[in-house]
Amino acid sequence: MIYYLCFLVFLIGVYGAICKKNIVKIILGLMLMEYAVNLFIVLVGYRKGGIAPIINKSMSLSEFVSKSVDPLPQAFVLTSIVIGLGILSLMVAVAIRLYERYGTFDITEMKKLRG
């Protein structure tokens, strides 16, 4: 059930990226897709009743291994989130430049292909 809701957010993002004319909406759609995938990957690594993968002294190592959630997807998603910020800043820079060039965010108005 939870995975399906993540997939629904992803589909909303795809819809926004494909169907919208406003370039800011397209950017938001792409970022929604990224958030949905990040969320999905972290949720796949969740263990029922699990604790965060941080060892403390009150717990033996075997007990920790049998209770911790999966740290590997968390490490990857941490990388992915930061890269998402880079993607967003690049897209917004392009959008600002397009607005200065054409005076609008509407992608159907941007017809002059010559730079």
Binding site: Y46, A52, Q74, V77, L78, V82, L85, L88
Partner: peptide
């Protein structure tokens, strides 16, 4: 779901991306 590192990073990145947007 037991991912405090990602929660902190997500919040910081969200604030920054909101400012950029």
């Amino acid at each position: 779901v037991g991912a405090p590192d990602i929660a902190i990073t997500q919040l910081v990145v969200e604030v920054l991306s909101l400012v950029i947007l």
